[in-house]
């Protein structure tokens, strides 16, 4: 029964959503809304599982003085700091309101840290591009040329070095051709494959053929 009940529930919910997509009439809409609400409620409760697991593992690391245990201390301090400030030190306001302690932490610590992580992407793009655009063989050379045309074509420099060519052959136009035709064609082919894959996987799960996500073979 441990396996059958989830499979039956999955089947019922999956078929309901499938039918609701084509049948707007009652009770399909109400049923799908109810199932969506249930999912949201379960997810909201599940956040406790995650939070408690994070604290358990972090406390264990500190208690056992594992390697790099001081990172766990940072996690614990941050966790409780934001929790306590949000719950008890909002100065009579809602914790999300502008000017609350939580808002201060969000704006002055969380946001800059997030932005820093995102900013690292620029350096990683540079290092990944350097590796990817090496002309090791014919295909990689085509990739390198396409990348050069697209990147140069997106800047005034691209048109400046090809100003002597007819307008259609300038780098900005070639860049657009690559992006609008070759790139879009490739992307669409991938998207069609993905859509078919999602339908097929969904069908396998709804029919109970696919069970590996429940821990089965």
């Amino acid at each position: 029964m441990r396996r059958e009940i989830p499979l039956i529930l999955t089947g019922i919910v999956g078929i309901t959503f499938f039918v609701q997509f084509f049948v707007p009439h009652s009770p399909m809409r109400e049923l799908s809304e109810t199932f969506s609400d249930w999912y949201s409620i379960i997810s909201a409760f599940a956040i406790w599982l995650g939070g408690l697991n994070l604290m358990k593992i972090s406390f264990e690391k500190v208690y056992k003085k594992d390697k790099d245990w001081f990172f766990a201390v940072t996690t614990i301090v941050s966790f409780f700091l934001i929790l306590i400030v949000g719950l008890f030190f909002s100065g009579g306001r809602q914790y999300l309101e502008q000017g609350s302690g939580y808002d201060w932490l969000y704006r002055n610590i969380y946001s800059p840290l997030s932005a820093t992580m995102f900013a690292l992407l620029a350096f990683f793009v540079a290092s990944a591009s350097y590796r990817a655009f090496r002309a090791r063989n014919a295909q990689a050379t085509v990739l390198l040329l396409a990348a050069f045309i697209v990147m140069a074509g997106r800047t005034p420099f691209g048109d400046w070095i090809t100003v002597f060519l007819p307008e259609g052959w300038r780098l900005s136009n070639l860049s657009n051709v690559i992006m609008n035709y070759f790139n879009v064609a490739g992307q669409r082919a991938i998207m069609i494959g993905i859509a078919l894959g999602i339908v097929s996987t969904s069908l396998r799960i709804i029919l109970g053929i696919e069970r590996s996500h429940l821990g089965g073979e």
Partner: peptide, 21 residues
């Protein structure tokens, strides 16, 4: 996908991920 192709040794592209099981 281009990022993974550039940085990883192997990449399952789109539908290959769903075919894995």
């Amino acid at each position: 996908l281009p990022f993974f192709v550039a940085a990883c040794d192997y990449t399952l592209i789109g539908e290959e991920l769903f075919a894995a099981s």
